[in-house]
């Protein structure tokens, strides 16, 4: 539709969020290139999750505008944003605990079937999705867990299931909030590989504390501290920036 000279999928301008007078995010300008992996890093409490909440409209910005694919989405509802192809994950694992692994993925698929509101149809009409569900579960290595309830999965698998559910929507862009937090080494590698795999033809914006994951995956990095953008660039530039180092040390001192 819109031919932007530099192809940005997301352009946020002057984004701010105040909680009862406290500025959690302040005047953030963020542009994300299409088909890139962009990392958002920063010390605890920097405002990263808040930025995610603003981009996906789980929070209404106090000021600023957000454009997605050239369209202004500043006043769009969160569910509608997901339907436009901008899908987020959550910092704490977000599965449907009492549904099976298969049902978890199917929930994401069934929206496109157009029967989500059909309360008069049998649930068995959803079985047309089974093949696609199995395919997705195969691709993330969860096929053998298909009939377990999500609550029974170990934490690492839960995060993988969450990714599989997100991918079922075939989103144009993913926002991942600390996808590897709380995972053991093996799981971190598994999830990182998965992110790389799915990032083909997609845009990924992720919040991540694990710097080795950040350095190996991301094309570009934005550093946030105390609600403001501190630095932006590739890993090389950012990691040498003295302000970034100081912010991180300051951040750890606080704890």
């Amino acid at each position: 539709m819109n031919t932007v000279p530099e192809d940005y999928i997301i352009e946020a301008q002057g984004l701010s969020k105040h909680f009862h007078g406290f500025a959690a995010v302040q005047d953030v300008n963020l542009k994300i290139r299409r088909h890139s992996i962009h990392a958002l890093i920063g010390p605890n409490g920097a405002g990263k999750t808040t930025v995610f909440n603003l981009l996906t409209k789980f929070l209404q910005p106090t000021a600023g505008t957000i454009r997605f694919n050239g369209r202004d989405i500043t006043n769009v509802k969160p569910a509608e944003i997901a339907r436009q192809g901008l899908v987020r994950s959550f910092q704490i694992s977000a599965v449907f605990p009492r549904m099976t692994v298969r049902e978890n993925v199917r929930i994401a698929l069934q929206r496109k079937l157009g029967t989500a509101y059909h309360f008069w149809k049998s649930v068995s009409t959803l079985s047309v999705l089974d093949d696609r569900v199995d395919e997705l579960l195969d691709s993330v290595g969860l096929r053998s867990f298909a009939d377990y309830s999500a609550a029974e999965l170990p934490y690492g698998r839960k995060r993988v299931l969450e990714l599989a559910t997100t991918l079922a929507l075939e989103p144009e862009m993913l926002l991942l909030d600390e996808p590897t937090s709380g995972l053991g080494h093996e799981d971190v590698d598994r999830v990182a590989a998965l992110i790389r795999k799915v990032s083909a033809n997609r845009t990924v914006l992720m919040v991540e504390h694990n710097l080795s994951v950040v350095s190996s995956l991301s094309d570009r990095i934005t550093v946030l501290a105390a609600g403001r953008i501190l630095a932006e660039g590739n890993y090389e530039t950012v990691s040498r920036d003295p302000r970034v180092i100081e912010a991180y040390i300051g951040g750890t001192d606080d704890e």
Binding site: V87, F96, P97, V123
Partner: peptide, 21 residues
């Protein structure tokens, strides 16, 4: 029903259901 399935997802994790559209 498909509706009931969605309802179930809403009650188990509403923010997640929203994020699925």
């Amino acid at each position: 029903s498909p509706f009931g399935q969605t309802l179930k997802s809403v009650r188990e994790n509403e923010p997640r259901a929203i994020s699925l559209g």
